[in-house]
Amino acid sequence: MTLFRTPQIVLFTRDIDRATNFYRRLGFEEAFRTPRVGTPIHVDLTLDGYRIGFATETSTRNDHCLDPVADGQHAAVILWTDDVHAGYAHRVDLGATPIKPPEPWLDHLLIAWAEDPEGHLIQVVQTVS
């Protein structure tokens, strides 16, 4: 028996509209939001069966009595692609901050790093022969 199912990650944000709009432009689709009207405190987006959530820093503090961190490189969203160069350029065109341009890693991957508008790391990765 498997105890858990349907894993996802939730990133904390100070500007949930900016964060979710950026990922929508990358191709993610909205799957959940609360509240449904007005500025949300939590939004889930999906892409190819993967679910990523965004929760406001304020709501997480007030609703759950936690101490979330919305700054820094605490997590990375990994996006696989067949064209790292195009994926890297596309993220930057949408407002991501370039961190490291495409470069080989190990002996079979090509990776590039950027930060989304909220400062979360995004890695685009491609298998190469």
Rank of each mutant, 00 (worst) to 15 (best):
L109M: 07
L106A: 09
C65I: 08
R18N: 11
G72F: 02
A31Q: 13
L47D: 01
Y50R: 00
R33S: 05
T34G: 13
Q126A: 01
P101L: 05
V84H: 03
R51P: 06
M1N: 14
A55V: 07
D17R: 14
L3V: 14
H120I: 08
T6L: 07
W113Q: 08
V77A: 01
T56L: 14
T60Y: 03
L109Q: 06
L94K: 08
H120S: 04
L109K: 05
E118I: 11
P104K: 05
P101Q: 09
L47G: 01
I41C: 13
E115C: 00
D17W: 10
H120V: 05
R51K: 15
E30T: 10
L45M: 09
F54L: 09
W105D: 03
T60Q: 03
F4V: 15
V125G: 08
V37N: 05
V69C: 15
V69A: 15
A75S: 11
R25P: 02
S129M: 06
E30W: 00
D44C: 05
N21S: 12
T46V: 12
T34F: 15
D71K: 06
I99D: 03
Y23V: 06
F32Q: 07
H74D: 11
D17L: 14
V84S: 12
V92M: 00
T97N: 03
V77K: 00
G38R: 08
G95K: 07
K100L: 03
I9L: 07
F32I: 07
P101R: 11
Y50W: 00
R36Q: 09
Y88I: 06
L45Y: 04
R18L: 14
N21Y: 06
G72Q: 04
L66C: 04
A96D: 03
V92H: 02
